[in-house]
Computed example of a mutant assay.
Amino acid sequence: MVARSSPDSPHHDPAATEAAKASGPGRPKDLAKRAAILEAAKQMFTRHGFDGASMDQIASAAGVSKLTVYSHFGDKETLFGAAVKSHCETGLPTSLFEARPDIPLRERLLAVARAFYGMITSPEAIAGHRMLCTPQLAGSPLSRLFWEAGPERVQNAFGTLLERRIASGELDIEPSPEAIHRAGTQFCVLLKGEPHAMLVFGCGDVGPADIEAHLAASVDMFLRAYATDRSGTPRSSR
């Protein structure tokens, strides 16, 4: 929870109190309304920032009452975290990290790379990145909420994929949580590279062909560092 309170805090809004009473343990929620609220939240946070987006705006954009928003998410901070998680799950679905030994390692990593880059360069992700770097939010509990809902979730899922490929003998990475995490973060940093920084700073966009070349080169650099002869990766990529 963010320490500072806001007009949308449940302590200031009677709607939140009523929602808490109406939403008892085990009470079923309308999944279609939840999805609509999450989509509206992404749009409002992208357009207005965290402080500028109100629960009233989000409720209106979702076509529901503010009471319904509070009933599903409790407060704006929790809704923000859920919106970040939803964005990551949509951009990087769980299926990308499933055990698929039939798919060659390089092909698998390229699929993850394309999905990851598409997710972090979407308008919502760029706006969120800029928002969290502002003096008002940098270092706040909201930053931790974002980290846990987004990057940490992605790293954990990718770490599971690396573990499987280490066990199959395709990757030469020490099978410890620390080493696997380090390799995973190195992979993500390689994928971001200069093109992502240019987008964040508003220095222009990079064309699709150059992006594909950047991602392929990043995957190949990762494989040169960690792939074994059993990975099936061409020597030119190692």
Rank of each mutant, 00 (worst) to 15 (best):
V2K: 10
R4K: 10
S5T: 04
S6Q: 01
P10I: 03
H12V: 00
D13A: 02
T17L: 14
A19M: 02
A20H: 07
A22N: 13
S23L: 12
G24Q: 09
P25M: 07
G26A: 03
R27A: 05
R27C: 06
P28Y: 12
K29Q: 05
L31A: 12
A32Y: 11
A32K: 14
A32Q: 07
K33H: 01
K33L: 03
K33T: 08
R34H: 09
A36W: 03
I37L: 00
T46C: 07
R47H: 13
R47Y: 10
G49D: 10
S54F: 01
M55G: 04
D56P: 03
Q57M: 13
A59G: 03
S60F: 10
S60C: 09
A62K: 06
G63S: 12
V64I: 12
L67Q: 12
L67R: 15
T68V: 11
T68K: 06
Y70P: 09
F73Q: 02
G74C: 12
T78L: 13
T78M: 13
F80I: 11
G81S: 11
A82Q: 07
A83P: 01
C88W: 15
C88K: 13
E89M: 07
F97E: 04
R100M: 10
P101G: 05
D102E: 14
P104K: 07
P104W: 03
R106L: 12
V112D: 11
V112L: 13
V112C: 15
V112S: 06
A113P: 12
G118L: 05
M119E: 11
I120F: 05
A125F: 13
I126P: 02
A127F: 13
H129R: 13
M131C: 15
M131T: 15
C133L: 15
L137G: 05
G139K: 07
S140W: 06
L142T: 08
S143M: 15
L145G: 00
W147I: 01
A149W: 06
G150N: 04
V154R: 07
F158H: 11
G159K: 03
T160E: 04
L161K: 11
L162C: 10
E163P: 04
R164A: 08
R164K: 00
R165W: 08
I166F: 06
I166E: 03
S168T: 09
G169L: 02
L171M: 13
I173D: 04
P175F: 05
S176A: 15
S176I: 13
I180N: 00
I180W: 01
I180C: 02
A183F: 08
A183C: 09
Q186C: 10
C188L: 15
C188I: 01
V189Y: 10
L190S: 02
L191W: 04
K192L: 13
G193C: 02
E194F: 05
P195C: 08
F201M: 14
C203A: 14
C203Q: 15
G204Y: 07
D205V: 14
D205M: 14
V206I: 14
V206M: 10
P208I: 14
P208A: 11
I211D: 08
A213E: 07
H214G: 08
A217I: 03
V219N: 09
D220E: 01
D220I: 02
F222A: 00
L223K: 03
R224V: 06
A225L: 15
A225R: 15
Y226P: 09
A227W: 03
D229Y: 04
R230W: 01
R230Q: 09
R235N: 09
R238D: 02
